[in-house]
Every structure is written in C-alpha cells, then in structure tokens.
Simulated scan of single mutants.
Amino acid sequence: MEFCPTCGMLLQYEMPHMGNPARFFCPTCPYVCPIAPKIKIKKKQPLVKKQIDSIITKDDLANAPETEAICDNCGHNKAAFFQVQIRSADEPSTTFYTCKKCGKTRRED
C-alpha cells in the first residue's frame, strides 16, 4: 500500500498500456509515481537446495523387519518395512517398504 505524499490519499494502481509503464496515481491530486524505473535487479542469486539428512540409515534398513510385499519396480516379493508418524497423532502411521533386491522405497498411508 502506498499513500500520496501531498494529500495522504491511498494511491491507485494503473496497469501499463500504450508504451507507458505501470504507475501509482492519486485520485484527488495530480501526483503520479511510475513503478518500472524504481525496480532494478542488481544481482541474480541462484537458489541452492538444502541437503536433507536421511532419517533412516542403511544400517537401520539392514536390521529392519522383513515382510512379503511385491515391489512395483522389479516384482521381488521381500521388503524391509518401517513405520513413521508423519501426520498428527490421531492419524495412522505411514509404512515405508524398501525392496530387498533393488532398494526402491514406496510408502503406504
């Protein structure tokens, strides 16, 4: 929200048209403030993805209990499983199955 420096009215926005840049203008006095010349990008900053640490390690998977679950990727019928409470406490846990042959993990809510 911008206010007029001369009369204090709330400035209104006018879309760019006919080669004129977008601007704020005062509906009661002749004050006009162009928007485009005031915005300058000085330096583009690349976004760096934060590395996420694994909650379950390979040692945990090696010691995890096994069950019969068919892998969607390779069709193998043995998988290690573990359960994690992802949602609120009144919701059921999420079960993760990791294939013993190819290592692909799938979740079941």
Score class of each variant (00 low, 15 high):
D59F: 05
D90G: 01
R23V: 03
A36E: 14
R106Q: 15
C102T: 04
E14G: 02
S88C: 07
K43Q: 15
K50A: 14
T95I: 11
K43A: 09
D109K: 05
I39Y: 04
T67A: 12
Y31L: 03
I55T: 09
I86Y: 01
E68K: 14
Q12G: 12
H17Y: 11
A22E: 08
C29M: 03
C102V: 09
K50N: 12
T94R: 01
C26H: 00
E108M: 09
D59K: 14
D109N: 09
F24N: 10
L10F: 05
D90Y: 03
T6W: 06
N77M: 10
Y31C: 06
E14I: 06
K50Y: 07
S54H: 11
Y97Q: 02
H76P: 01
R106W: 14
D60H: 08
S93Q: 08
P30R: 06
K101R: 11
T67E: 15
C71M: 09
Q51M: 12
R106D: 15
P34A: 06
T98W: 00
P16L: 04
K43L: 11
P46T: 10
C33A: 13
S93N: 04
D72T: 12
K104C: 07
M9W: 09
V48G: 09
A64H: 00
P5V: 11
P5R: 14
E108F: 14
I55K: 02
C99E: 05
M18I: 04
D109L: 08
Y31D: 00
K44L: 12
D109R: 05
F24W: 12
T6C: 04
C29G: 03
K43C: 05
A22Y: 02
L47Y: 12
M15P: 03
F25M: 03
Q45I: 15
P27Q: 07
I70K: 13
C102P: 05
F96N: 04
F96M: 10
P27I: 01
P37E: 06
C26W: 02
K44G: 05
E14S: 12
C4A: 09
T94Y: 06
Q83N: 10
A89G: 06
K38E: 14
P65V: 00
K49N: 13
H76G: 07
N20A: 13
F25K: 01
I56P: 00
F81L: 03
P27M: 05
C99L: 04
T6Y: 13
F25A: 09
E91W: 03
M18V: 01
N20P: 00
F3Q: 12
Q51F: 10
I39C: 02
E2F: 14
P92R: 02
Y13P: 02
P16W: 02
A62F: 02
D109P: 10
P92H: 03
M15L: 05
I35P: 04
T28Q: 13
D72V: 11
P37Y: 07
C4H: 06
P65C: 00
F81M: 05
I86K: 06
F96V: 14
L11Q: 10
K78P: 08
P27R: 08
P5S: 12
S93K: 10
D59I: 01
G8W: 14
C99T: 06
A64Y: 01
N63K: 13
E91D: 11
G8K: 06
A80P: 05
